[in-house]
Design a protein around this nucleic acid. Sequence first.
DNA 1: ATTGCTGTCGATTGACACCGTACAAACAGA
DNA 2: TCTGTTTGTACGGTGTCAATCGACAGCAAT
Lengths: 95, 95
Amino acid sequence: MAMKNPVHPGAIVREDCLKPLGLSVTEGARRLGVGRQTLSNLVNERASISIEMAYRLSKAFGSTPETWLGMQLAFDLARSRHLERTIEVARIAAG
Amino acid sequence: MAMKNPVHPGAIVREDCLKPLGLSVTEGARRLGVGRQTLSNLVNERASISIEMAYRLSKAFGSTPETWLGMQLAFDLARSRHLERTIEVARIAAG
DNA sequence: ATTGCTGTCGATTGACACCGTACAAACAGA
DNA sequence: TCTGTTTGTACGGTGTCAATCGACAGCAAT
């Protein structure tokens, strides 16, 4: 299920944006207007999609900033599910 | 329109969580398990909803982390619309 | 070997959430 | 008035993370 194990947005950039167009990381970074390392960290899933990067990706490859950031949010949420048991609060409203 | 000018998530906490229950910022922070300043900054719209805070809010007041973070994302996106014109990229795919 | 392009590591900077402490102002009760 | 609570706010410090720059190794072409 996509809901349980979302793919890292950087993998989308790598597989669905750069690869089909035969773009290298360096060339992709140039088109996006960011440093080589910035895009490299993203496609290697070491960095997240920032707001600014979301605008760049949507402008260069299509889609919308909302979509890119939504993917990042889904990924972050799935990766932080362990907090569900860690965090303790005093329940106030109905739960 | 809610899409153009989303309300800050901190205002939701203030108006729809604390106020209806008659909870002070101090008491709310205690129940949430965070410092008083942390909640104060949030309800006064000076801080954003972090992943951890999203879990705390959903546990204490209901709703889901997705909903809280989605509100924050909508707010951040609306507040960063100016990047639409600022950012320059070399368009690659159809746009 | 030299040149040029590429991917990646290391260190730094800047932004931000969070904490503890502390101070001043507002307010309720004794 | 004195006391206690709440609140906003400011300062100092920690930790995380995106972005950036400098430097290095791999590799192809000349």
